[in-house]
């Protein structure tokens, strides 16, 4: 995806100098290997800052809510689905946006690369389908496909669903992926085992809220965590509070989550927080055939209904 950088810069330069947009939101190269930083450019001469590689796992839709400018935005498949969400939820107007579409081949999980390398990544060079990383004890080459983020491995919407200009031809979508395999495994457990599983999964949480804040869906002016009258949950490391937080955070994403993986990518403790949102996504898909953010013409799963929706669980 390295060749995308030039094209992104070219498009950004064009739309900025033509006055089509006031700013372009994209990525710039990070200060450490395998990192990118979301950034914006307002000047056609400054587009050289923009770059794109397989380390752009942040979701840029997170940076456009309630903005008044005309914005050019670099969007992978998942980002574009979150842009659709924002349009539906009136967080931005379609006319404000010039969407620079990225046909995405998946983002690399830097934690996985770090774990495979067994230490700090000192240097990383990305090639067309491989990654050469240098660590303290030498060099290693990995295939990009093997090092993808979990969500990217099973992604079926790699091409943007809403776009003004693509940086390259569409990529082939993955078929027959099995994204909910691990959810099904958990479902097979007994209630006690499930409790133990989630206690274990969530106990390293430090309540930094990176998962919430990295998520473009989380934009409430006051999050339930910060509400004090009534106070829905405590602020300590008590596991019940931690679980309550994660339950409600996930639930607030139901019918809206696009599996972009920004939450997991952001977690400093490496918690697989998508174990919760995935269950909701699976239920949305299996119960109502719903996948979030595919079209601006349909209301999200919890903002619509059918007269004959399943209700076996209701007496």
């Amino acid at each position: 995806m390295l060749e995308y950088t030039n094209k992104i810069q070219e498009i950004a330069k064009k739309i900025l100098s033509e006055g089509k947009v006031d700013m372009v939101i994209g990525f710039r190269k990070g200060t450490i290997p395998m990192m990118s930083e979301p950034c914006f450019v307002t000047d056609a001469d400054g587009v050289g800052e923009l770059s794109f590689d397989s380390n752009c796992g942040s979701n840029l839709a997170n940076y456009i809510m309630d903005r008044k400018e005309k914005i050019g935005i670099v969007a992978k498949g998942c980002d574009s689905r979150n842009i659709v969400n924002h349009i539906i939820e009136n967080k931005i107007k379609r006319e404000q946006l010039y969407i620079i579409g990225i046909p995405c081949r998946g983002m690399v999980d830097r934690h996985a690369v770090g774990a495979a390398l067994g230490g700090e990544i000192l240097e990383a060079v990305e090639n067309a389908d491989s990654l050469v990383v240098k660590g303290v004890d030498g060099e290693a080459t990995y295939s990009l496909v093997d090092m993808l983020q979990d969500n990217c491995k099973t992604c079926t919407h790699r091409n943007p669903v809403i776009v003004d200009e693509m940086v390259a031809d569409k990529v082939e979508e993955q078929q027959d992926t099995n994204p909910y395999e691990d959810v099904k495994k958990i479902e097979a457990l007994s209630p006690e085992e499930k409790t133990a599983y989630f206690d274990e999964l969530l106990s390293p949480c430090i309540r930094c809220y990176a998962c919430r804040n990295a998520c473009p869906l989380c934009y409430c002016p006051t999050c339930f965590v910060d509400e004090s009258r009534p106070q829905w949950l405590g602020k300590s490391q008590d596991i019940t509070d931690v679980k309550t937080f994660h339950f409600l955070r996930a639930y607030h994403c139901s019918g809206r989550c696009t599996e972009c993986g920004a939450c997991e990518n952001a977690c400093p403790m490496g918690i697989k927080v998508r174990q919760l949102t995935k269950k909701l996504n699976m239920d949305c898909l299996e119960t109502w055939g719903w996948e979030a953010g595919l079209t601006v013409d349909a209301r999200p799963a919890l903002d619509q209904y059918n007269l004959n929706d399943p209700e076996e669980f209701i007496k």
Partner: peptide
């Protein structure tokens, strides 16, 4: 109640997914 029905469906499933007894 139509909206509620959808909401309850997911809510109940997620609670039970996290270990709450049916």
């Amino acid at each position: 109640n139509y909206y509620a029905r959808r909401k309850f469906n997911l809510m109940k499933n997620l609670l039970e997914h996290m270990g709450l007894e049916p």
